[in-house]
Design a protein around this nucleic acid. Structure first.
Lengths: 196, 196
DNA sequence: ATATTATGTGAATATATATTCACAAGAGGT
DNA sequence: ACCTCTTGTGAATATATATTCACATAATAT
């Protein structure tokens, strides 16, 4: 029998195991059985700590939300120059994806969007906040003269996020078969050419 | 009993029904039962025309591949100015997504990427061709002076595609609850500001 | 030390899904 | 009219998955 740990600890383990499964096999494969395997415990024990799949999904979404959004907000709130902030946010986001490939898979899974409406709404709000945060930084960059004056701040933010997201997508789609870091560097370089 | 039609016709009906299901309920919900409902025939009849789910998935991918890529290649091959071509490709792509919301859901489903490796490879190649097509148009735009000289053609193409893809994603994620057309127009306008 | 509570698990249950099968019924050729 | 091939279907089968349950065992309180 497995050693006993508190529910608080097991919940974290289960969330990490779930994210690991999503990163390796996708949301479709996020079954209780797969989570149990990955976490090294019995299926029944999963139910000891979570009421069911929905609650696990919500916990995973909560983990991702804090990881991505909190980070960006902290950077945006700093005192550096806007372009510098954007660069840091961009590469933190890429680093987070490399560390947890399950994050983009989870956030952009139609399974989540259509199967867990409340979760999708929560995620939508989070993404909306993220977009606004970046929009704010870009607007500052424009008014401080670091970026072109005729840019639309929100659309430029969407373009930047699309860049990140499309890269993550091609990467997970190709089964992580190319180096995402150099790809990201070229994209960032080009974004600077584009935006100023 | 349903009226009889040839396998050729039924196959098309089934592919369209499948795409409709994906658009409405996501790839996860693409069950034989759901396809049968949407196509208005029995489940057993699906098997009369396709050997199984894999063959249906392949047929859907084939339909999408022709629809997206062929179109772009035709436009790219024309004699108009590069920026003009880009605009047409951009808005055709958006129009296609509006008409078939199942297309982005299907192409970007981790279910496909991880569950149907051969299909994922086929799609990857198609996407690669699409990227190259657009890269070529952008390279022409740069050398003809329509676009900034210091742009990286491939990265700019990825940025443009990311814009489209992220828009499609937010749209399907929000359950098609905002107007995608005006959103696309603002993004295109801003892309022109960015790229020249 | 004992009782109580929290944690862990194999086995059972219920449901969904993909696939097969035996048979029905129309279409086209003879 | 008869035969044959194609198309259509309800019922059966096999498997996967989520969830529950009765029981075991460790931790904690009394």
């Amino acid at each position: 029998m497995l050693e006993k740990k508190s529910t608080r600890v097991r919940k974290e383990e289960i969330v990490q195991a779930a994210l690991e499964v999503v990163g390796r096999k996708g949301v479709r494969a996020l079954t209780i059985s797969a989570i149990a395997d990955s976490a090294g415990m019995s299926e029944a024990n999963i139910y000891r700590h979570f009421s069911g799949k929905d609650e696990i999904f919500a916990a995973v979404a909560e983990f991702i939300g804090s990881a991505v959004v909190t980070n960006a907000a902290a950077i945006a709130g700093g005192s550096r120059k806007p372009l510098d902030k954007l660069e840091t946010i961009f590469f933190s986001h890429i680093a987070l994806i490399i560390e947890h490939p399950g994050i983009p898979r989870f956030v952009f899974s139609d399974d989540i969007h259509l199967g867990q409406r409340d979760l999708a709404d929560t995620l939508s709000v989070r993404i909306g906040n993220y977009i606004e945060t970046i929009t704010g930084v870009i607007a500052a960059g424009i008014s401080e003269g670091e970026l072109k004056p005729d840019l639309l701040a929100r659309e430029t933010a969407l373009t930047l996020l699309g860049m990140i997201q499309f890269t993550a997508l091609r990467w997970t789609m190709s089964n992580t078969s190319f180096e995402i870091q150099p790809e990201a560097e070229k994209l960032w370089l080009n974004f600077k050419h584009l935006a100023r």
